[in-house]
Computed example of a mutant assay.
Amino acid sequence: MTSEDNFAHEFERYLYRSFHFGPNTKIRQYDPSIMEIFGVLSLTDVRQPDRKLWYVYYCKQTEVDETLDRIFKKYGKKNMREIFRKPVFSGVDLCDKVKDHFAEKKLYVKGKLIEAPRNSPYNDDKIMRQVTGLYDEEQRLLFQYVCSKS
């Protein structure tokens, strides 16, 4: 069981205890048209391989394939790889948080592209860790909001 699954399981147990519900025995059916997906793609510029670029995207779960196809057509499928993809409550909010976070770290942010300066220590692993940290922070805020309302 991963930490994300563990968090979801503990969160669900907490909600059942808080609101005095019995254990959930139903299989949940999620509506994929409601759930949003947030992701980050690593871009490689063929003309300048030392250039560090990342593309931030979000869309409904049902539109993931269309969105990725559109991005791949624009930048080339060989030049991209996905480093982060998670379901989120609001893709717009997380996208704004990520862009603001990296703008504060003095990376160039234009639209949905994030570019690191030439001699910066940023690489895919560091970007992925920071985006994961922002994602976890958003999940904690959501958890605390639900806890405060109960």
Results as ranks from 00 to 15, higher is better:
Asp100Arg: 07
Ala103Lys: 13
Thr62Ser: 11
Asn79Ala: 04
Thr67Trp: 07
Val64Arg: 13
Ser150Gln: 14
Lys74Tyr: 09
Phe19Arg: 12
Leu113Lys: 13
Phe19Trp: 09
Gly133Phe: 12
Tyr16Thr: 05
Val64Leu: 12
Lys52Leu: 03
Gln48Ile: 11
Leu68Ile: 11
Lys26Ser: 15
Leu41Met: 11
Tyr16His: 10
Ser120Thr: 02
Arg13Ser: 08
Thr25His: 09
Phe21Tyr: 11
Phe72Glu: 15
His9Cys: 13
Tyr135Glu: 01
Asp124Pro: 02
Tyr58Asn: 11
Met80Gln: 14
Leu141Pro: 09
Ser150Trp: 14
Met1Asn: 05
Tyr122Gln: 11
Ala116Cys: 14
Cys95Glu: 08
Asp50Pro: 05
Arg140Ile: 11
Lys149Val: 06
Lys78Tyr: 09
Pro117Ser: 04
Lys110Gly: 08
Ser150Thr: 14
Asp93Arg: 15
Arg129Asn: 04
Asp124Ile: 02
Val46Glu: 00
His9Arg: 09
His20Arg: 08
Glu137Val: 10
Ala8Gln: 15
Val131Gly: 04
Gly76Arg: 03
Tyr16Met: 04
Thr2Phe: 03
Val88Asp: 01
Arg140Leu: 04
Lys26Tyr: 15
Glu104Tyr: 13
Pro117Glu: 03
Pro87Cys: 00
Glu10Tyr: 07
Glu82Gly: 06
Val109Tyr: 11
Ala8Trp: 11
Trp54His: 09
Ser18Glu: 10
Glu137Ser: 10
Thr132Arg: 04
Glu137Tyr: 10
Gln139Cys: 03
